[in-house]
Amino acid sequence: MPVRGHVGSDYERLRPEFRVIPNPWSPSERIMLVPPIAPDVALIHAIAATADGMLLLDHMEDDALLAQASRAVVASTERIVAPEELRRGDGVILQGIHVTALVEAPGGARPTFVRGVSPVDADAIHEYVAAAVDDATFKRYLDRYVYG
């Protein structure tokens, strides 16, 4: 896809997959093309979902876009609700056709926030940042919170 800017920066040197071409509709100018990002899997946490995979997502985040770019979408959700309740919710709706798998996992976004449900856990994020500084402290972090 075409993007404005970029031409004349070191992205031309560092990212050979970014192509610079004459703009087909205005050939006296050059424009950059970047290839799409196509993740194998997107992991998304929904505010709510229906049993057949329709998701209620945060309207200020990019989850719906991410889902549509990815080959497979694994969604977790705070709770499973009826379709009419989902449609009344505050957020954007992503249809189930984009969703590969769904799991009900309340709190599945922690320590980040779920709009309207739970706030960000700033202390937990600071703990992660501190632990991520070196391999030994990060291993202790993983042992405690992931493998423990």
Binding site: R4, G5, V7, G8, S9, D10, Y11, L14, S28, R30
Partner: peptide
Amino acid sequence: DTVTSPGATPPDVVR
């Protein structure tokens, strides 16, 4: 060291 965003650009770039 690395130019993410240049101050000046060539004339054939929309800016």
